[in-house]
Design a protein around this nucleic acid. Structure first.
Length: 156
DNA sequence: GCCAACGTTGGC
DNA sequence: GCCAACGTTGGC
């Protein structure tokens, strides 16, 4: 299976790319996804070794670096944690509703690739992220888009 | 802070 | 099954 590419969003106020780099082993359990479409991507398509564009929403609005998938979809433990805001009383432990994957930090971009820059970049006009009202926190990225964004991020 | 877009919930 | 109300996301 060919390596696939994804864009994953995070509000840096709650979990930033820095937090990922500083996490033990540079890894984290990417939990808290409570959207069925995003869940389905995790379940059906995200594989170990896939590349991830790590996007900061809110104030930054930029891809700040690269991560990779180090563990495929597994039940999101926070859905069963009564004290967690992601607690889902309807989720059955025998057949969990929500999934998480594990991500590892890979590379900081020299230059964060801003939403504005991506809007202007030739070759990125079809990007999922740029669609009006696109709120998905896990999005597929084509090999071509990946190449372009990575090249932008590595240049000064 | 505002508001458009979107997903979810719940009454009917 | 429809749709209004509501909550959340996220760009501006």
């Amino acid at each position: 299976m060919a390596r696939r590419f994804w864009l994953m969003k995070s509000d840096p106020e709650s979990f930033s790319f820095d937090d990922l780099r500083k996490a033990p082993g540079g890894k984290t359990c990417w939990d808290g996804i409570r959207n069925y479409q995003a869940r389905n991507y995790l379940r059906d398509d995200v594989r170990v070794g896939d590349g991830v564009l790590f996007y900061h929403s809110q104030a930054d609005k930029a891809v700040v670096g690269l991560a990779k998938v180090v563990k495929a979809a597994h039940p999101d433990p926070t859905q069963f944690d009564r004290k967690h805001h992601g607690f889902d009383p309807d989720s059955d432990p025998k057949s969990p509703t929500w999934l998480a994957v594990d991500l590892a930090w890979e590379e900081d971009f020299k230059t964060p690739v801003t939403l504005g820059a991506m809007k202007k970049a030739p070759g990125l006009s079809e990007m999922f992220l740029l669609e009006k009202g696109s709120r998905l926190s896990v999005q597929p990225v084509t090999a071509e888009e990946w190449k372009i964004v990575v090249a932008m991020g590595r240049s000064r």
